[in-house]
Amino acid sequence: MMNDAHEKIDQERRRFLGTAAGVTTAVVAPGVFLHTVATAQSSDAEGRTEGATSAHRWGMLIDTTKCADGCDACVTACNRENGLDLQAKPEGQSEAEWLQQRSAWIRKVKLQDQVSGRISNLPILCQHCEHPPCVDVCPTGASFKRADGIVLVDRHTCIGCRYCMMACPYKARSFIHAEVEEKLTRAPRGKGCVESCTLCVHRLDRGELTTACAEACAKDGHGAIVFGDLKDPDSALSQALRAQPNRQIREDLKLNTGVRYAGL
């Protein structure tokens, strides 16, 4: 008897499955439609400026022998330029934890040679690799490299998976852990996305040929950061690179970084 009952087709179950499929379609379809509309609009708004070209490749040489101990002019300038100083510690979060969670695009590192004991100072920032691991691993393509070599995050397509942060050999990226109340138009910032140094792309796109950090370092009289075009043999950067031996951090990975270090 039991078997007989099972041989019969359960109409109720079929109806239920049919309704479930219908409801799912009804829920998902509008989202797909709206997304198409949204992306169509954003592509219409493009074309305001000329796109970046591969005629340039922007980069930096950081001379660690000129980088002063205890100086944080580059960090302060970057924070002000990109609105990083507007981040507020969420109420209830401890200072120590917040320092680990707040966004930082450039940070000062102090090293001691294990054999000689020699001390070096240098800033670490996104190295704007030619072969950036963050771009390789990003599932949506939000991490991308512009034609002029600047590695950026498209904040419209970043889903906040942090795989790029796992992949970055320089710990150069930050995740926005908390709500951001105040932000600058030139550096929009939203909770749940990843960001990193843009080489002050907003300045470059306006035709200015310097970054906030390089400018501040020069203003303080250190001149440890030379910014410029790696593809222009006459640029100050190319000349500086020719003049003194320099290297890339984690050269073993063969990423061909845009940021080079001398005196290390």
Binding site: P139, C161, Y163
Partner: peptide
């Protein structure tokens, strides 16, 4: 756990096939 779980649809419409994550989807 994504920073932007509301953008799941982005993950389903934008793919970077050099990413093993995209393949995993």
């Amino acid at each position: 756990d994504l920073g932007r779980p509301d953008r799941l649809i982005v993950a389903m419409t934008h793919y970077n096939f050099r990413s093993i994550f995209a393949w995993n989807i």
